[in-house]
Amino acid sequence: MSPELIRLILEATLDTLAMVAAAAGIGGLVGLPLGVFLATSGPGELFAVPWLNRALGFLVNVTRSTPFIILVVAIIPFTRLIAGTSIGTGAAIVPLTVAAIPFIARIVEGAIREVDGGLVEAARAFGATPLQIALKVLLPEALPAIVLGLTLSIVSLTGFSAMVGAVGGGGLGDLGIRYGYQRFMPEVMAAVVVILVLIVQLVQTLGDGLARRLNRRIRRA
């Protein structure tokens, strides 16, 4: 493999990492509170605003049911508005983030809903405000599940990021398609796949380890 190719692969790897990190970071910042709100704003719940809960739930479902490649194209005007352009690695972060937010929100919602209702009742019985219940009970108790969910989100985003070549985004997926497939360079394709596998393995291992450290439900010596 020529030094030129190695440089390309290195660059694409960094592009992928940057896109996934930015989308996961922003997606987490928005998705986490959104997920908490989705889990606590239904009828009779802590922050009951049923109409908003339904509206946000619908929006999340629409985004999640749109195939990512179509989402990328469909929101080009929005991407241009945010990033100033609809082409390139930077611009690709926008659709990735838009896909990440509802994904993370649903995962956080699920994790929060898994928290034993008895704990919420106990906190209420001790005079906790709804905000205190969310911050001191729901989030800490759901944290291991949230970490696992975020890990899953990052892995999925890594997969999604391979599609942004369609709008001129860079990254490993784009490299694999252009060199490995269109220029018949199987060694580039192989390198791309190996690097993606390594990234996913690393993320999953780190996420599992962190979740295990945080999970106090397991008895350990």
Partner: peptide, 8 residues
């Protein structure tokens, strides 16, 4: 069921 926080 005690309702203790498992994280504390």
């Amino acid at each position: 069921h005690f309702n203790l926080l498992s994280s504390r």
